[in-house]
């Protein structure tokens, strides 16, 4: 039987090239295992081989993220590995970011399972925990011995496509992913038991911790509205008749950009709403209730605002994952910038 192939990523320090003085080294590829890879190789046993070790200086990686990633990918790809392991980076911040970045890229570009490991306070953890399985390690290389069997166990499961269990059981850092399971008792009974404990002042652990939503500093105000170009964005689910891009009526996974060039108002002949979260009867009759095109056109003529962008951006808000909404935003802000948009009116139902 052919052995499963692993490619391993390590930094300048663990390759033996040196510390800070070698941190600028460019990507290199070495056949076989080296440094911490030797311990991994031994643990994985005879069905596995470390086909190659790729090395990059932490500073070079950090200063040339895209180039370093591309170079490394081109070195890894020819080995056709079954598994990619980076680090572990322990508490080395730059190394952690490098491990996370290259793992994410390998998973996306080569479509193979990836694994890395870090100490939980490594800044790379928060950047990548949702995307990757990050094995929990101690804060220094002294923790390697303990980490090795965890790499082996998870690596094997990933290669064989077996189910990965919870973070505490498997030994990786909690990823913040909500996964379904069947509990022993139904929800109402569990809730009542928790409430009785809560009333007694006993510990009553929540099944869903409240998230901490992040915040953005308010931008400076618009100083010259009469010369500002405004764009309309909505989560009200307004789309052209027939919903050409099939935007979902709930839990949207996409958004649309549609023209309003030359239109004086939102005509019900042209637009409809697919929003599944409210009684659509009113908006179906008059889409201006969500996209106030009629009054914005007036204001444009009156010179109250400079100009209205000749399109609007739209999606369905109800049940739409915050991650998706964020991704939509990140995706379309480039266009807003490019088109010289000076202010946005975002409407929600």
């Amino acid at each position: 039987m052919a052995k499963y192939k692993i490619v391993h990523y390590i930094n300048n320090f663990f390759s033996g090239a040196g510390g800070e003085e070698a941190a600028g080294m460019r990507p290199e590829v070495h056949e076989g295992a080296m440094g911490p890879g030797l311990a991994l190789l031994e643990a994985f046993g005879e069905d596995y081989e470390i086909a190659a070790t790729v090395v990059c200086g932490d500073n070079y990686f950090g200063e040339n993220l895209e180039d370093a990633t591309a170079e490394l990918l081109s070195m890894i790809e020819p080995f056709k590995p079954d598994l990619f392991i980076a680090g572990p980076a322990f508490n080395a911040g730059r190394y952690g970011v490098a491990c996370g970045t290259i793992c994410k890229a390998v998973e996306k570009e080569l479509g193979i399972p990836v694994l890395t490991g870090m100490y939980e306070e490594n800044p790379g953890v928060d950047m990548f925990r949702k995307d990757l399985i990050v094995i929990k390690t101690k804060n220094s290389a002294a923790g390697m011995r303990k980490a090795v069997p965890v790499f082996k166990n998870l690596g094997e499961k990933l290669v064989k496509g077996e189910e990965i269990l919870g973070p505490d059981i498997e030994g990786y850092l909690e990823r913040g992913i909500r996964v379904n399971y069947f509990a022993e008792k139904r929800g109402s009974e569990r809730a009542i038991e928790l409430l009785v404990k809560k009333c007694r002042g006993e510990e009553c652990p929540t099944e869903y911790p409240m998230p901490k939503f992040d915040r953005v500093e308010p931008t400076a105000p618009v100083t010259d509205m009469a010369h500002t170009k405004i764009a309309i964005v909505t989560s009200g689910g307004i789309v052209p008749q027939g919903n050409p891009d099939h935007i979902e009526s709930s839990s949207a996974t996409k958004y649309g950009i549609y023209s309003i060039a030359g239109m004086e108002r939102m005509d019900k002949k042209d637009f409809m709403t697919v929003h599944g979260g409210y009684d659509r009867a009113f908006v179906t009759e008059d889409p201006n209730l969500v996209i106030p095109l009629d009054v914005l056109r007036e204001m444009e003529k009156e010179g109250v605002i400079g100009e209205l962008a000749d399109y609007f951006i739209t999606t369905t808000g109800t049940g739409t994952a915050t991650g998706n909404a964020k991704a939509f935003g990140e995706d379309f802000v480039g266009k807003l910038k490019e088109d010289g948009i000076g202010a946005v009116i975002l409407t929600s139902t």
Partner: peptide, 28 residues
């Protein structure tokens, strides 16, 4: 104690509810 279901996206990575208050500290 609140009983609720969750909508964190297909990948399970987003916030599960549209709103949140610190008082909602015991949920099923």
């Amino acid at each position: 104690v609140i009983i609720t279901d969750e909508f964190p996206g297909r990948d399970g990575k987003s916030y599960s509810l549209a709103d949140a208050v610190p008082e909602a500290d015991t949920m099923v």
